[in-house]
Each structure stands twice: as structure tokens, then as C-alpha cells.
Measured scan of single mutants.
Amino acid sequence: NEEPLPEGWEIRYTREGVRYFVDHNTRTTTFKDPRNGKS
């Protein structure tokens, strides 16, 4: 039961299956979860 991502964020996966987060607001990507700060 995960809380929803902030507005404008999306979860994607690399070809290796590593989860990362896309911030469409700033057009950046990060491996850090914007909901809780954990990677």
C-alpha cells in the first residue's frame, strides 16, 4: 500500500529492471523515491 507519487512524477524501470523516478516538472530523473526519500 504505497502512497501515490507527487504530481508530475512517474515510475519507470531500466532495461535491467532497476526502478527509478521521472520528475516531469523539472525533466529530471532520480533513483531516490520522492515519497519518502529512500532509494
Rank of each mutant, 00 (worst) to 15 (best):
R15M: 12
G17L: 05
T28N: 08
R19Y: 05
I11W: 04
F31Q: 07
F31P: 05
E16L: 14
K32Q: 14
T29G: 07
N1G: 13
P4D: 10
S39Y: 14
T30M: 04
R12K: 12
T14W: 03
H24G: 07
E10D: 07
R27T: 08
W9S: 00
W9N: 00
R19V: 10
G17W: 05
Y20C: 07
P4V: 07
G8A: 04
E10W: 04
P6Y: 04
E2I: 10
N25F: 08
F21N: 00
V22A: 05
E2C: 15
G37Q: 10
N25T: 09
D23L: 03
R35N: 03
L5V: 06
P34H: 00
E10I: 07
V18L: 12
N36L: 14
T30G: 04
E7M: 13
W9F: 05
G8D: 03
R27S: 13
E10T: 09
P6V: 03
E10V: 08
K32N: 13
R19L: 10
K38L: 15
L5K: 01
G8F: 06
K32W: 13
N1M: 13
E10L: 06
T26F: 04
V22D: 01
F21V: 00
W9A: 00
F31N: 07
L5A: 02
P4A: 11
T29E: 12
L5E: 01
E7K: 13
R12C: 13
Y20Q: 03
Y20W: 04
T30F: 04
E7G: 09
E2V: 10
F31D: 07
T29Y: 15
R19N: 04
G8N: 08
T26E: 05
T30D: 03
R27D: 13
P34Q: 01
R27Y: 08
G8V: 02
D23E: 05
E3Q: 11
R15Q: 10
T28S: 09
T28K: 11
V18G: 06
P4M: 09
E16H: 14
N1L: 13
P4N: 09
Y13Q: 05
T30H: 11
P34G: 01
V22Y: 15
G17H: 07
R35Y: 03
E2D: 11
V18F: 11
R19D: 01
P4F: 07
F21A: 00
L5C: 00
R12S: 06
T26W: 03
S39W: 14
H24V: 08
G17R: 07
E7P: 14
E3W: 09
D23A: 03
H24M: 08
S39A: 14
R35Q: 02
P4E: 10
P6L: 04
T28E: 08
N25E: 06
V22R: 06
F31E: 07
Y13V: 07
N1T: 13
T28P: 00
N36V: 13
G37E: 12
N1I: 13
R27E: 12
T29N: 09
E7I: 11
T29K: 15
N25W: 07
E7A: 14
R12I: 06
P34E: 01
V22H: 07
S39L: 14
R15T: 11
T14V: 03
L5H: 02
L5Y: 03
I11Y: 05
E2Y: 11
T26H: 06
T14G: 05
D23Y: 05
N1E: 14
F31S: 08
T14S: 09
H24F: 09
Y20S: 01
D33H: 03
G17S: 04
P4W: 07
P34L: 01
P34N: 00
G37W: 10
T28M: 08
H24N: 11
S39H: 14
V18P: 01
R19P: 12
G8C: 07
R12Y: 07
N36C: 15
G37L: 10
Y13T: 06
G37M: 09
T14Q: 02
P34V: 01
K32Y: 13
I11P: 02
T29R: 13
W9P: 00
R27W: 08
D33W: 02
S39I: 14
F21L: 01
D33A: 01
H24S: 08
D23P: 01
L5Q: 02
W9D: 00
V18H: 10
P6W: 04
R15K: 12
T14E: 01
F31L: 13
K38R: 09
Y20R: 01
T14Y: 03
I11S: 07
S39G: 14
Y20V: 07
F21E: 00
L5D: 01
N25H: 08
F31V: 07
T28I: 08
F31R: 08
E16M: 14
R15P: 12
T30L: 03
P4T: 08
E16Q: 14
I11V: 10
Y13D: 01
D23V: 02
F31H: 08
S39D: 15
E2H: 10
E2G: 10
T26G: 06
E2R: 09
N25D: 05
K38A: 15
Y20A: 01
T30E: 02
L5M: 11
E10G: 06
E16A: 15
E16K: 15
E7F: 12
V18A: 09
H24A: 07
T28R: 11
K38T: 14
D33Q: 01
V18R: 14
F21Y: 08
Y20K: 01
N36H: 11
N25K: 10
H24Q: 08
D23I: 02
G17Q: 05
T28Q: 09
T28Y: 07
I11K: 06
Y20I: 07
